[in-house]
Each structure stands twice: as C-alpha cells, then as structure tokens.
Amino acid sequence: MDQGPAPGLPRPRILLVDDDTRTSRLLAHMLREDGFDVEFASNGAAAISRLTRTPMPDILVTDLHMPDVDGIAVTQFARSKEPLLPVVIVTGHPNMAIGLGATLIPLPVVLTKPIEYAKLAEELRRVSVGIVL
C-alpha cells in the first residue's frame, strides 16, 4: 500500500488509544506497514501515563468513550504537554465528540466509526506532513 509518508522522511509517531484491543492491534499493524510508528494504549489511564514520558507522539488517535478516562480527558492532558498536538477522535458518537471537542484549539479531527482504513491513513498522512514541514 502506498498511503504512508514519503520514503526518507522520519516515520511519524502515533499514539493509538482504544479499548477495543483486537481491532486496535490490527489497525496498528496496518499503519506500521504503511510507514507509521504506532504505540498502543488500551485505556485512558494508560494513555496518560504514556504521555508523561518522552518522546511525545506526533499524533494522538483516540476513541471517545472509554471507561474512567475518556478521549477528551486524554486529549486535554496531551495538549497540556504539547499545545499544538494533532488529535484524531474516532468515535461512534461523532456529534458528542464535536460538541465536547469544540473548546479545543486546534480542533480535533472527528471520524465516525466504522472508519474506512484508507480514509484514516489518508488523514494521518495529511496531518503528519504538516508536522514534518
């Protein structure tokens, strides 16, 4: 597949947060094949704990609804460390994500489940090019 970043450029680092472990592992696998470095957290607390360490991810991809710590909390924590961090929220509640994320600047990208893999990869490539430049 050719959705990945151009060869020779550093691989963008993605933190993928979702409590659906099976699907996330598969998604991480495909993204790695397409030229991304992917770290995975299966809940909000684990994601925050990862975000306290360096290096920070280049992009945060998170689910909205998760037990205890939700995607908005993870996003807020990440933005407290890295104010311009690109965020993609993948959710079955797009309206809620748009509503809750409305105060976040820059606005998170909201994708509705079920996501098309090609569309997600395209979005990530677009965002990652922005970082590298």
Binding site: D20, R22, T23, L26, L27, M30, V90, T91, G92, T112, K113, P114, I115, E116, Y117
Partner: peptide, 11 residues
Amino acid sequence: IRNPLNGAQLH
C-alpha cells in the same frame, strides 16, 4: 453498533 462495525470494517 458502530464499534463492532468498526472492527468488522478494519478486519
């Protein structure tokens, strides 16, 4: 419904 659909779609 969207969560399992998401899994199915990615698979």
